[in-house]
Amino acid sequence: MTTRRSPWRTAVGLVLTAVMLFPVYWMVNVSLTATTDMRKDPPNLFPVNPTLVGYQAVLEQQLPFLATSLAVGLGTVLLTLAVAAPAGYALAKLRPRGEGVLSFVLLSSQMIPAIIMAMGFYAIYLKLGVLNTVAGLIVADSTIAVPFAVMVFTAFMQGIPDELVNAAKIDGASHLRTFWSVIMPVSRNAAVTVSLFAFLWAWSDFIFASSLDNGGDARPITLGIYAYIGNNNQQWNAIMATAVVASIPATVLLVLAQRYVAAGVTAGAVKD
């Protein structure tokens, strides 16, 4: 598209973005504010006396929570890929029975509020004794991503030419080998999109964490922040510093993988 030189539009755009991102700026600003300045009226609009005590508190108190979140996020990515990629291949290339019903089920499953899934999982996990475990949280978190992932893989793999599959077949490759050595390498972009979102959703999850993993040692960072809010109303620099650290995956995602993000937002929502 041609870019017109229109300085006033750029100026308006900058102002709008600044307004939109003000809460994000404010989070960073508060995270650098000294505890004594926290209740100042009016508050400092800029970090005039920046301090790192908030971040020091993160290092001292939140590292285990961050480690749990990392483990839960990676586990969710693996489980999601393992379930969704083969299903996407079957739906895109093998024309299975009941295809229509299955895609209907996948679409509807995305409509189910997580809070209801959490109730069902709680009852089951209590009986199985897997409340407050990383594995239990991974399974629950993956339910947010799996239907989306199947749809992304299906849409992407439909675009892979049939000749590629047929050629592998004629060369004597088994279906499993075709899937693993031909389809998966070509579908890297879909796998990256799915992994990024599965990780981000698991990392950000609060509902499943607070209902299924609220007691043990292995609690994720979202509960770390939540416990902070409940406990010490004064230490908002530590709360906001944790919030800043918890936002790092989203930021990395936006900087490194912007095209995948846009693809993910529009996937399944708008047809071409």
């Binding site: 017109r4 750029t10 755009g13 900058l14 991102l21 994000v24 981000l200 919030a243 989203a250 936006l254």
Partner: peptide
Amino acid sequence: SSFRLSATLRALFLVPWLLPLIVSAST
């Protein structure tokens, strides 16, 4: 109607959507 920096600014508008909800809510 694209203008200088429009792609970058549009990308920045995604930030609130990508942040964990607990981060946005506590902020």
